[in-house]
Design a protein around this nucleic acid. Structure first.
Lengths: 259, 259
DNA sequence: TACCTGTTGTTGTAGTTGTGACAACATTTA
DNA sequence: TAAATGTTGTCACAACTACAACAACAGGTA
């Protein structure tokens, strides 16, 4: 009587995102533990209704997650997880390559149009994961300069890496409080120690000190701590919005003691 | 009035396998074509009921597939397909790494047990994709020898590649009809020209000539063309089953003229 | 016979899809 | 200014679809 209660529901969730249903998960997990079984045995181990086991096994074997014998009654065995999951992922990846191609075709169709409208917009980004990945994208898009007004939590490892892989023709400046010694400043960045970081009231939050990233003096990402549960950030290419922050940056830079 | 009728349902199918619902697909595709729109405009373009647009946009923005403005009314824009799909895949891949770990733990738990039962089994494999990938796995597991009785269609590029990356300590022999010149024999394989390939009646099909792969004289994969729609193959480690084919192979080899 | 396997069809249930209505706000009109 | 009109965002709920669960049955095997 196998017992793996602790995380079996967790595994189900994960396998569902790979395209399996609840029953398919249960049957596959059951088969992993028994080195071959008949449909009825699978039903007993997994708890899946016996009649439902057959179509489930059918689909699993089509996806090469289980193997079937030629005997009567049929016996079934799970393929090793490594192999099975790789096979699932390969299928998904193949799919995605196709759909990526189709979607970009649609997307490119209107790339020629002017996008003045979009440039005047200020966009919201929710969730720290999203904020992080968008910040990395932004930094990697830099062509001439990156300026970062650094609060406490902005220089995460992915962002440090994005900065350090920038070419030497790109100026990277990071303004820090400069009170405590910091080990998170990439080598190709120039640190501006400016004491307590000043910031406009509008951007201030309670929990997080403000962070701003300005790229090529044309694109700005500002971290807005809304005191609520999920963090959010603003992004814009609007000249007015960008000017607000480049001016701010100039002020900070003017008051920073030379290193 | 955008029109991309040809493949829009196809794209839906693909996106669903990445975890999106029908509405989420429609809204995202609609947004790809318009460079920013309000909820009502999205409703008009995509055909999704206006009231349903809001929760859908909410979920899409959580997954960073669309961006939202701070304006009122809110405006929405799609993130470029490349970026969006990469983000979706990254999530799935991360998931799979975790689940792979959990499943292997379960799987390893019974690896110590004897698997005599399994060794006596003959397993079925359905579908040419599955057959191909299993054949590659089988060849890669070789430790001393690989013997292939080659029909017309077995030496696909993936299999050729699997063969050619085997170490020099592994003997690779491929029996061919040897009538026509072939360019699909990897360099590290020894070709046995045996004229018309003989085969037992039981394995013969109408459409495909029979193919057999024997690895380490212990594992056999035989391609069974069942004249039906989907091709299938047998795999076994059963000594009796394997002996059948090693004997067969010995016969073929005995009659092959030395190269 | 009795038992088990594999298949079919029916019913329940959860999640997605679709409709209508409503308060809040902005814009227009008298 | 006040009323009329229109739009946005939200809510509650009906309809539908795919999956889950069960009951019943034909064909084998002992």
């Amino acid at each position: 009587m196998p017992n793996i209660a602790p995380s079996t529901s967790m595994i189900q969730e994960h396998l569902k995102s790979l395209g399996l249903t609840k029953y398919e998960c249960l049957v596959y997990i059951a088969l992993l533990q028994v080195d071959g079984a008949t449909a009825t045995e699978i039903h007993e181990i997994s708890g899946v209704p016996r009649a439902s086991v057959y179509p489930v096994l059918d689909k699993l074997s089509k996806n090469q997650l289980v193997n079937v014998t030629t005997t009567s009654p049929k016996r079934f065995a799970a393929t090793p997880p490594e192999e099975a999951i790789d096979s699932l992922i390969a299928r998904i990846t193949r799919n995605s390559a196709a759909v990526k191609h189709e979607l970009t075709a649609i997307y490119e169709e209107r790339t020629s149009m002017n996008h003045a409208e979009r440039q005047e917009m200020i966009w919201n980004i929710h969730g720290s994961d999203n904020i992080g990945s968008r910040a990395v994208d932004l930094i990697q898009s830099a062509e001439s300069s990156v300026a970062i007004l650094s609060g406490t939590t902005i220089l995460t490892p992915p962002i440090q890496k994005a900065i350090s892989t920038l070419g030497p023709e790109i100026t990277v400046e990071i303004a820090t409080a400069g009170i405590n010694a910091r080990d998170d400043i990439p080598g190709n960045a120039r640190e501006l120690k400016i004491g307590i970081v000043p910031y406009p009231e509008k951007i201030q939050g309670d929990k997080h000190t403000p962070c701003i990233i300005i790229v090529d003096r044309q694109r700005v990402m500002a971290f807005v701590s809304d005191n609520a549960d999920i963090p959010s950030a603003l992004y814009s290419e609007s000249p007015g919005f960008v000017n607000l922050f480049t001016g701010y940056w100039g002020f900070v830079k003017g008051h920073a003691p030379l290193p």
